[in-house]
Simulated assay, not measured.
Amino acid sequence: MIIKQVSVFLENKSGRLNEVTKILSDVDINISAFTIADTSDFGILRMIVSDPDRACETLKQNAFSVQTTEVVLAKTPNKAGSLSKLLDILQKEEVFIEYMYAFSMNDDGAVTVIRPTRIERCVEMLQKHKTELVRASELYSL
């Protein structure tokens, strides 16, 4: 239920994102989801990948600044109001969210990647409210 996310610090230069994707592709690591937050000087690429430990090791060997963080993946129906219901649960249970992003799986639903300040509490509250959580073992079959 708690998944490792890979964060890569990138200089805001042409081609840096492409370098990361090629490096991961060369070692057969799949990117399931990603988001980029940027400033004028640098960006942070956050990714859910098929092998986070190997991705970090490989990227570090190629001179990238990389770290892992823990996130929760919540699965919801892909229809209007589903995200609002998820956020209502977290707000009512006083789970603070640092950031989040999502991806759609069309008819199979949507997955929201959540980085809470207290990850165990987040998992506990989502389970209490019968929210389907994605396990690491099933992540790569999505």
Score class of each variant (00 low, 15 high):
residue 13 K to F: 03
residue 105 M to W: 10
residue 41 D to A: 14
residue 89 I to T: 02
residue 2 I to M: 12
residue 106 N to S: 12
residue 91 Q to S: 09
residue 36 I to R: 06
residue 112 T to Y: 09
residue 81 G to I: 01
residue 20 V to W: 04
residue 30 N to R: 07
residue 95 V to Q: 04
residue 79 K to V: 15
residue 93 E to M: 09
residue 36 I to C: 14
residue 82 S to V: 05
residue 2 I to V: 14
residue 72 V to K: 08
residue 83 L to C: 11
residue 27 V to A: 15
residue 112 T to S: 11
residue 27 V to D: 07
residue 67 Q to K: 04
residue 15 G to I: 01
residue 58 T to D: 03
residue 40 S to E: 13
residue 109 G to S: 11
residue 37 A to L: 13
residue 125 M to G: 07
residue 23 I to E: 01
residue 61 Q to V: 02
residue 111 V to C: 13
residue 98 E to G: 02
residue 69 T to K: 07
residue 41 D to G: 14
residue 3 I to L: 15
residue 85 K to W: 03
residue 70 E to Q: 12
residue 80 A to V: 11
residue 31 I to D: 07
residue 119 I to Q: 07
residue 48 I to N: 03
residue 18 N to Y: 13
residue 79 K to C: 10
residue 65 S to Q: 05
residue 127 Q to H: 09
residue 77 P to H: 05
residue 137 S to Q: 08
residue 2 I to S: 14
residue 85 K to T: 08
residue 116 P to D: 03
residue 88 D to I: 11
residue 131 T to N: 13
residue 50 S to T: 04
residue 48 I to L: 12
residue 134 V to Y: 00
residue 32 S to G: 13
residue 49 V to R: 00
residue 123 V to H: 10
residue 104 S to W: 11
residue 57 E to A: 14
residue 98 E to W: 05
residue 8 V to G: 08
residue 123 V to M: 10
residue 139 L to R: 00
residue 43 G to W: 01
residue 74 A to D: 11
residue 48 I to Q: 07
residue 61 Q to T: 09
residue 25 S to Q: 01
residue 81 G to L: 05
residue 81 G to P: 12
